[in-house]
């Protein structure tokens, strides 16, 4: 378990460094960087490489935005095993829903509770 914390820190940190390099060296805006990382996560998931990384680094792999792409693919693949090609469309948000629904709900609550600054 302690090893898990260590690797979560290292892998999570490294993914963030990659993002920082894309922003600093690649001169991408944060929006471009995050979009690219999600796409990369989806592609890694397609090759079956993201799942072992989650096994290895736990939250170090599930917390960075790349895991969003992974869980989208994962949900689509799970559903497509059951329903074929149609499942690709319908299963997309099966696994991911929590991140987006949490963002929507807390975003709304936040907007209702907090006052804008400046």
């Amino acid at each position: 378990m302690l090893a898990m914390f260590f690797w979560a820190f290292v892998i999570g940190g490294l993914i963030c460094v990659i993002g920082q390099l894309m922003m600093d060296v690649g001169k991408l805006t944060p929006g471009h960087t995050l979009s690219t990382m999600v796409v990369v996560g989806a592609i890694l998931s397609g090759f079956g490489l993201y799942e072992p990384l989650i096994d290895f680094a736990g939250a170090g792999a599930t917390i960075p935005i790349t895991s969003f792409g992974n869980s989208l693919v994962e949900g689509a693949m799970q559903e497509s095993e059951k329903h074929g090609l149609v499942g690709v469309l319908t299963g997309m948000f099966e696994v991911t829903s929590s991140g987006i629904s949490a963002a929507i709900i807390f975003g709304f609550i936040g907007a209702a509770v907090f006052k804008p600054k400046g």
Binding site: A3, M4, W7, E51, P52, L53, D55, F56
Partner: peptide
């Protein structure tokens, strides 16, 4: 063992 977790499945 942690370093083998890559091949857990």
């Amino acid at each position: 063992r942690h370093l083998d977790r890559f091949r857990m499945k």
